[in-house]
Structure formats: C-alpha cells, structure tokens
Nucleic acid binder design. Structure first.
Lengths: 191, 191, 191, 191
DNA sequence: CTCTAATCGAGACGGTACGTCGCGTCTTACG
DNA sequence: CGTAAGACGCGACGTACCGTCTCGATTAGAG
C-alpha cells in the first residue's frame, strides 16, 4: 500500500473540483454556481474547498490558466509568422482535439471572464515581443485578431454540426489573420 | 407651470438611477455595485429601486438596450451595403459623439454582459434579414464582424489619445467589414 | 340640502374605519392588521387614514376609550357600595346589552392591550377616590377585582351558550367582589 | 476536558439569546425589540438568530414555556387540594425565589402574551383533569383563579417593597382560591 | 353659475426591519 | 494529520409596511 495516499487524495480533490466546475458550467453561469454545489458534486467537504482555493475564481483560474496559455502560444505566432495558414490550421486542430473542455470554457457560464483573461494575457505577451505592423497600432491589431479568433472558435464549437477543421482554419485565417497584414499592393494604407 | 410633477418624479428616479449606474461603472465591476450604493448615489430610497427594477440586471438592460439598438441599426447595414466605408464612418462618428456613455458600456464593469447582449441582438436581427455571403456561414460572418467591431470600438475609446474618427473608420472597415465579402480574386474586396 | 356634507363625510370616514377595525379584530390580532386592510375594508383612501389618526393605536384608543370609561364607571362603584350584587347585575346587564362590541374588545385581537388599558384606567380612578379596605393594600384589591371581572366577562361573552345575566352577576359578585371585603366575623384577617 | 464544545457553543448561543431577551424586556415592550438588538446584545451573528428560532415569538416561547409549566404544576393543584393555604404558600415561595425572571415575564414587555399563554396552558391541563365544583362552570373557575393569581403575583413583584411571602400567600388564598369552593353556608370555605 | 378652496382616492416615495442566502472561517470528530 | 460535516459572523439581498407626500377629480360655498 503506497504512502502517497495523502497526496493522491489531495490531487483527487483538485481533479474532482475541476471536473465539477466544468460540469456545472454547462448548466449555468459561473456566478450562479455556489460553492456548496461544487463540493457536493465533487463529493468533497465544504471546508475542503477553501483549503485548495481561496475563492471560486481561483478554481476557475486554476482550470483556465493552463489551457489559455497553451492555446495562446499557438495563437500569437500567427501574427509574426510567414505561413499563417499552417499556423491557423495547427491552432484549429488543437482546439478541435480538446473541444470537450474548450466548448465549456468558451460557451459555458465562464465565457465572458475567460475571453477577457485570454485577451489580457495576449496583450501582455504581445507587449513583450512587439512586431510593428506599421499601418495600424500594434495593440489594436492584437485585440482584433485575438478576439476575432476566440469568438469564431466559440461559435465553431457551439455548432451542432461543426465545420471541418481545415475549412474552419481557412476561414479564420482569411477573416482574422490576413487582414492585419499590409495589403500586398500597399503603399499608403490610410488612403 | 408643469402639471406632471408625479410623472416627472418617476422619470427623475429612473434617470437618477441610470446616471448613478453609469458613474459607478466607471469605478468598479458591475457585480460589485450594491443596490444601496446606487440608490444613495441617485438620492433615492432603497426600496424605490425595486419598484422600478426587479433586479440590478434589469437596470443595466434598461440602460443598455436603447443604446445597443441605436448602435446596432448602424452596425448591421454594414453587412448589406455597397459603400461600406461610408457606413463605417457613420458608425464611428456616432460612437465618438456618444463616447461618454459608450466608453463606460464597453470598458466599464458591465462590458462582458453588454458585449454578449450586443451580439445576441445582432444575431437576432440578422436572422430576420439574411444576406447569404455564400463563401461562409451567415451566422459566423455576423459573429465575426460584430464582435470585431465592438472590441475595436472598446479599444478605441479606452485610449488616452484616440485615433481620429476617420482613421478608425478606415481600419475598422478594412479589418472587420471587408474580409467577409467575397475574396479579391472573386471580386475586389479592397475596393 | 344640509350644509354639513363635509362634516358628514368626515364622520362617515371615522365610522367606517372603526367598523373596519372591529371586523378585522374578529379575524386576527391587532398587530397583524395593516393600515391598507383597514382603509380598503372601510372604502377609504390610504392617506385618509392618517388624516384622522396619527397611528393604528390611535384608532384603537378612539374605539375603546369611550367604551372602557363607560364600563369603568359601572365597575368601580362595586368596591364602595353596600349592595354589591345590585351593582354587579347592572354591570353584567350593560355588558350583555353591548355584547357585540365587547365580545370583540375582550376576545378579539386587541384583548391584551385593552385589558391593560382597562386596569390602568381603573387604578388611576381608584387612586383619586381611595377606600381603604384595611386588611389588604388598596391597589392589590383593585387589581384583583378589576382583572377578575374583566376576565370573567371575557369568558362569558366567548361562550357559545352564555349563562343568563343574573346568574353571571351572582357568580361575579361572589368570586370577584365579595372576597375583598372584610370577612363578616373578622377581627384578624391574617389568621 | 470537555468534548462537547460544538454543542456547548450552540447552547451558549441559545442561552445568550434568552438572556438578551430578558434584559431587553426590562427596557421596552416585546414588539419594539429588534432582532438586531437581541443578537448584538447576545454577541451573536444576526443570521444565527434565525438558525435557532424562526421568529422572535419562538424565542419568547422557548423562554417562557418551561417557566410557565413549572409554575403551573404548582398553581393547578390549588384547585384540587385540601390544604389550599399550604399550596398557595409553596407557590408564592417559588415565585419569590425566581422573582428575577418572573418579574420580567409578568411585568416586562411580554406580559400580555405570557399571561395569555399561561391561561391557555392552564385550561388545557384542567380539561385533562376535571374537578367539578358544581356551583359554577369548571372553565370559569379556572379562568378566574388562574388570572387572578397571575395578576396578583405580577402586582406583588412590581412593588418596590413587596409584602412578605407568607402574607401574600394568605391574601392570594383568600381572594383567588377559596372563593371557588362551595359557599360557607354549604360547607365552611374558610376552613 | 362660476370660480376658488378644501377634501378625497389613489398610489409613489424615503425609510426601517425583516427573514433569506451565500461566502469564507472555524471547530469538532473520525479514520 | 487531513477530511467531512456543519455552525457561525458577516453582509447584501429583495420584501413588507409605515407614515409622508403630491396628484387630479369631486365638490363647497362665496362671488
């Protein structure tokens, strides 16, 4: 009998809470989810929740932060790469692969705060690694591209009969990525 | 000498509450605003709040719905019009003119729910008046264009030194409107 | 056509409110009766109530004070008279005659405050016109006799098949009045 | 080392609330006591009050019921016993011993409802164990004796310089107990 | 017969206390 | 030791009723 039962239990608690949150987010907005519900659903004591997380929001962060960062490292390069379509396809493929969780994150009861966190994080990363697009403010470009991509992914996963990954990638690339690059025949964009 | 003092008072209450909400939204997120604060700031009795609105959210709707619909009737035609740039300029000019209130609505504490309401309303209107863009699902097009426009307007108003209306219109048009039209090799999108 | 229509109306309001209170006191305790109910039942405007009475309690006083004083002037002489039985009979006869209102006052929702007011008033009157009974403190004698009489009257009127006036008078006299007089063969009452 | 700290705390809360009520009843009528005052005085959270009692009235019952029943079991035997004076003395001695709490209960802000509860309870007990006094209805006899005793005890405890227990017992016996027995010319009631 | 003043019904309002709800802390008992 | 269970302090909520107020319609009795 292993000695890590304690650690195991701790992890189990954490997992159970995350899972419970994901399930409840499919049913109702985040703010309406009560701690009692979370712990009951997770089969965990009420007070135990606060030993892991100081807050309901902390649990959400814990759930979302990792996923967001993973996805972000696939989103941002789009703005600096040459072969944008390939990157967009990689992004869409990744989301599709993890659609179970991303569907909830983007369309469940925490969508709003998650999108905000996403954009916030993206802007922070972009500031570290600027890539002036000349014809429009860097921050505006990032805001546009990131939010457009998120919203489109949200729409995509919400569909009862989603488009194929490849087609989604083409559309995303054309709508949200290419427009921020200077026009191929461009000299004066303000004209 | 006006005869409508009672009605006037009723309206005054409503106006005062709206105004108080706008002011408080500049200071903190919507959920953290307490009814007591609203009524105190509005110089109105606590119970009176619930005589007008069943909810804090109702007040927000009341505040936002009108503004949203006014703006939406300027946003949607973008998708069906010939001279998109002119329409975009009209849109930006309108927002600029009402930037006091829109700055709060788009960047204040109610931004998330407001953006959601906005998109929701836009999709409803679009469904009533479809305009198939053939190469991509109508709903996706609307989602993309509307959210992109909203986010860009939010960014714009948030700037300490905002771009001129005209320049903002050009960028918005190029990023969020033109891309949903058939591609340049099908028909010239930059025109 | 009389000139007192205004006064008449005022009286009508007052009567209607008293009547409404009496009716409602048959149904529920005084504290649970809302001003709105009173005015509705009386067919009178809400604000009109406060034009007549500053308070719900004022209405109750207005209703009770007269009746109490009328009854009291028949109760107190019992303590000073020779032929107590005759007085007790007069008292019982009076109560029986006005049993409609006294039933409500003594058993309805205002019974408690009414009994208290009654005793209070009786003690005040007794203090003005002392009649030392030697063998026990005057105030105690009054308290005993008055509350005993009130409670017995209350019981009497509450009965579905009340005792005859005469019998009630005999019992009341024997239980509540005679005992406070010195015993006929009395020298030392503490023995 | 006690193991019942949780239970202890629960009891402590209950005790503190009862004590707070008793104190406040010395200052003002029951209806004017606000729950907030009770909890503050008891050093207890506002909501905690409603975890114990659904109502302010429930607290009062909880406080009074025990005491009432203890006293009642000493009051009723008076009606069935041979040596009434001894019983009356026992009753008065008990009340005197607990005069701190009974002074508040009988003369404080809850006197009215307490007296009513007392009589109510007494009638219920009497119905279980009838003792026909022939010459007058049982219920009337109980109503008379019980209310007379209560009111006299209330008066007694209210005095700045109360009569001795023994004297009070003699008076109570003569005024409220003996009169319900058959008259002296049927059988000697003073014996 | 009209016009001004008083009165009424209706009901909105500021205010106060209520009883409920959920959070996050804490204490106990168990494995 | 860490956990399930759940009581507690706290504080916002939305409700209910009070007593005040203003309104517009209905008369009153003076001009």
């Amino acid at each position: 009998m292993p000695k890590v039962t304690t650690r195991e239990k701790a992890s189990r608690t954490q997992l159970a809470l995350r899972q419970a949150l994901l399930e409840l987010l499919e049913e109702k907005p985040f703010e309406q989810i009560k701690v009692k519900e979370l712990t009951t659903r997770a089969g965990v004591g009420y007070a135990t929740f606060f030993r892991r997380y100081s807050d309901k929001d902390h649990l959400l962060s814990d759930l979302a932060t990792n996923e967001i960062d993973k996805l972000l490292t696939m989103t941002l390069p789009l703005l600096y790469t040459v072969d944008t379509l390939a990157s967009t396809q990689a992004l869409c493929a990744y989301v599709w692969e993890h659609r179970r969780v991303w569907k909830v994150l983007l369309n469940g009861g925490a969508a709003a705060s998650l999108k905000e966190a996403y954009l916030h994080r993206a802007l922070a990363l972009a500031r570290e690694q600027p890539s002036p697009k000349a014809w429009l403010p860097e921050e505006l470009a990032v805001t546009f591209a990131v939010t457009a991509i998120i919203e489109m992914q949200a729409w995509w996963l919400k569909q009862p009969d989603p488009l194929p990954v490849k087609e989604m990638a083409v559309i995303t690339n054309r709508l949200a990525v290419l427009p921020i690059y200077p026009a191929s025949d461009e000299q004066d964009a303000t004209h």
